[in-house]
Design a protein around this nucleic acid. Structure first.
Lengths: 220, 220
DNA sequence: GGCTTATTGGTATTTTTTTATCGAGAATGA
DNA sequence: TCATTCTCGATAAAAAAATACCAATAAGCC
């Protein structure tokens, strides 16, 4: 329906970023056997504003019942559907260094709608290995495998110097979205989705806050 | 000076998150021997708005020269000083699983003002090992070592189920800031800085965009 | 030396996001 | 049954952030 697409387009990015946080919490609730939950409860738990939680949940299309709240399983379904996590999206990983190997070993992606089905590396000596159950192929084989297996997502974990050229391979092979773990800002055509993980930004927030409190402490 | 602290307090979070991106670019420029750079240039390169870049840089206290721009080395210094990255902040890492080990092996932290000097794990069989040159201690030893070595930052890379208890150890040992790589939202006193990495949020943005474009494609 | 042009830094405007307010609906208990 | 209370959903207000605008300034050029 057209309405859904319009909503998707207009969903605030901060709201989308909060959805997985709700999801994580809701799944814990489901395990505990809790049938319903209210925005107030969620907000209390996560130290957020109840109205904000309500608006965030609303973008997924869920409707709640006054005095009761939302059905936990239904709400989980609604968020998962909105994010496209109902079926696991298959992905290729490029760059099996330290970080790449760690991500291959991370089981949590199953809950995030992501399934890394193969890995690639430009270093020939790494190809042929199997890391955490996934085979490592030479990078040259990526384009043919991507089109054959209809893979749309690429996880980029190569060194910064190789980032753009590896990205170009991904783009050239028809990949729609790149999850970029490198510090490089990639050049990509507008129809390719690029999401940067920006570890540095996260650390910047932490250290600037720390710097600020340290200065205050020194002053007083 | 009081002015600096006020500025720190009022600095928009999105601006702070962009600073490391500028920094990364500026360092590349410095290597290439470029002496000055303008906001326009930076903005073009990173596909941002020039005014936004100017405002972001202004919060670090840098002043530029009309018609010229900013001195690259001076600008780098200014950003580093603002973020507290001039001296490397020493940190402890808790949880040497897949991800923890990968972070121990990541050399890039040196550029981000972070120096992980030791690792900890609650599993006794992991203690005593050395991973990427850092010794792994039993978690029980963290409090005494933290106070003795004046370490203020804790990098948390334990499984979700152990997150809160490990965080409590960190908080109890006088750690000021926790860089939280787990999916758990930690309970912490207000004077403890907690920065969540939220891999899931990043992936949510990617997959919701992908879901949206897929839906549009199907429609048309 | 004066003119043109690029770029800063401050101010103003618009947009986005968050927070507050309020009416309506539904469960609970008298 | 009816009042009470909790919670949703919609609307409005406030705050934050992004964007646009403009005067001031300095470099390069004629």
């Amino acid at each position: 329906m057209a309405i859904v697409n319009t909503e998707l387009k207009n969903a605030p990015l901060p709201s989308i970023k909060r959805l997985p946080i709700y999801l994580n919490m809701l799944r814990l609730m489901q395990v505990k056997g809790r049938p319903v939950v209210s925005c107030t409860h969620i907000a209390d738990d996560l130290h957020l504003d109840p109205t904000q939680v309500r608006k965030d949940l609303a973008i997924t299309g869920i409707i709640g019942r006054p005095k009761v709240g939302y059905q936990v399983p239904e709400l989980i379904q609604s968020i998962e559907a909105f994010l496209g996590w109902k079926k696991a999206n298959e992905a290729f990983l490029v760059g099996v260094g330290n970080l790449g190997s760690a991500l291959l070993g991370y089981e949590g992606f199953a809950h995030l709608g992501l399934k890394i089905i193969a890995a690639f590396d430009s270093h020939p000596e790494k190809a042929g290995k199997t890391i955490h159950g996934r085979e490592v192929f030479p990078l040259e084989q990526l384009p043919s495998l991507a089109s054959r297996m209809h893979v749309h997502i690429g996880v980029l974990t190569v060194p910064a110097s190789a980032a753009q050229s590896a990205a170009d391979v991904l783009i050239g092979s028809g990949i729609r979205a790149i999850w970029n773990f490198t510090a490089t800002r990639l050049d990509a055509p507008p129809d390719t989705i690029v999401e940067n993980v920006e570890l540095a930004s996260s650390l910047a927030v932490l250290s600037s806050k720390l710097e600020a409190t340290m200065k205050n402490k020194k002053k007083s």
